[in-house]
Amino acid sequence: MGQVIVVTSGKGGVGKTTTTANLGTALAQLGNRVVLVDADIGLRNLDVVMGLENRIVYDLVDVVEGNARLKQALIKDKRSENLYLLAAAQTREKKDVSAEQMKNLTDQLAREFDFVLLDCPAGIEDGFKNAIAGAQKAIIVANPEVSSVRDADRVIGLWDAQEGERSPAMLIVNRVRPRMVARGDMLEIDDMLEMLAVDLLGVVPEDDHIIVSTNRGEPAVYSRDSKAGKAFHNIARRLMGEAVPILDLEADESFWARFKRIVGFGRS
C-alpha cells in the first residue's frame, strides 16, 4: 500500500500547488510511482503547474460518479514515466464529492501507487474535509508570516482532531528569505516550530525560478540551479525515510548578519 499525503495550509497562496507539483515530480524522479490529485474542485490549478492542461479528458468527479474509469482519467506526465495526475473538475462544486467518495478513491489509488499526493483547497470547509478524509499524513505549508502561521495552527488542530490512524502533521516553511531572517525582519523557523509544536519536514527559500517554472509548466525540481527545487528534492528524500539535513540557507547570509551571529549578538 502506498502513502496518502495531503498538502494543506488553511491560507491560500502560500504554495500548496507548487509544493505538490514539485514533491510529486521529485518523488517520481527518485523512482517512485506517484499520482497527484487536484482536490480543489471548481478551481483546477495543478494541471497548469504541471503543464498538462491540454491533456485532460476526464476528471476526479467523472471517476467518482462512474462516468469514467480511474485508468481513463489518470493523465501521464510529459517527462516522468511513473508520474500521473488526476485533475479536479472545473465546472463542479466541492459538495459534489463526499468525504467517503474521496476516501474510496484514495484507497484505490494507494493500491497502485507508492505516493498519492492530494493538493488540498484553501480554507477549512468541505473541500478541506474531503481532501483530508483519506490521508494518513499531512504536510502543512506555511510562509513565515503571522497570518499564514495562524492558519497553519488552525489546520493542525483540525488534523489532530480527525478520527482514524494518522501521523502527526509535518511542516514545510515555504518562501523563506534568508537575508530578511538574518536581518531580523522575518520570523525564524525555530520560533514557528516552537509555536506550532510540529515537526519540520523542510525549508524552501523564495526563488524566482518558481515563477519561471510555473510560466513554462515545468516544476522547478527539473532546474539544476533552482534553490527551491533543490529544497523540494531534499524533502522528497525525507518523505522516503532518508535523513537529509535541512538546506543551509545561511549560505546566503549577509556580512552583517554573519558578524552579529559570530560576535554573539542577536538570536542565532
Partner: peptide, 9 residues
C-alpha cells in the same frame, strides 16, 4: 519586526 511578528503571533 521579526520580534514583533513573533509576539503578535
Amino acid at each position: 519586526s521579526a520580534d514583533i511578528a513573533r509576539e503578535r503571533l
